[in-house]
């Protein structure tokens, strides 16, 4: 079982710690705001029946699209459920619901311009409710935001003037 408090405690802010330091030095409100967003998409007060393990699996699958995903992947522990483990690893899913979700998540992460009404309809067909689709959309988009943030700040941290 994933210990959410440890997960959040270590990785609520951007990883690694030197990037948090840069952010806090110049824009502390951005760091705090990003932390609140992470809570909202990963461990909301009302999870809308989307289990934490599924949320983490989605986040992990998308994080693999980063240029250097290793540090960020530490913030999303590998699920113990075999289906979610495969999902989070970017594998093809045999469960129909996870298969549709995987296709959607991959598209949002890599080719968001291709999104259409049909993609949402496909999610509804396999059983996701409208609130769940919105929550998943926010989660996917947050992880993509974090990927760009960490990438950009890492460049700045290692840039020698």
């Amino acid at each position: 079982m994933i210990d959410t408090s440890d997960t959040i405690g270590i990785n609520a802010e951007l990883a690694p710690n030197n990037l948090v330091r840069i952010g806090r030095m110049f824009r502390p409100e951005f760091i705090e705001g990003a932390k609140d967003c992470r809570y909202a998409v990963l461990t909301p007060n009302d999870p809308l029946d989307l289990l934490h393990d599924l949320r983490v699996a989605v986040a992990r699958r998308i994080t693999k699209t980063a240029a250097n995903p290793d540090s960020q992947l530490k913030g999303y522990p590998i699920p113990t459920d075999e289906s979610l483990k495969a999902f989070s690893a970017g594998e093809i899913c045999t469960d129909p619901k996870l298969a549709v979700l995987a296709a959607h998540v991959d598209m949002i992460a890599s080719e968001p311009s291709k999104a259409s009404a049909q993609h949402l309809s496909d999610l509804q067909t396999v059983g996701f409710s409208v609130p769940q689709i919105i929550a998943l959309s926010e989660l996917c988009a947050y992880v993509c935001f974090q990927i760009r943030l960490v990438h950009g700040l890492s460049l700045l941290e290692t840039h020698h003037e």
Binding site: G23, I108, P112, S137, A141, F145, L156
Partner: peptide
Amino acid sequence: TEAGMDKLEIIDLIHAIAIFGWANRLMHPL
């Protein structure tokens, strides 16, 4: 930096670009 941007400005730019990566992934697909 050669165009005159300082560290704070670049941090702001990174955040603006990143938050639009988020916003775009809501506005367009939904």
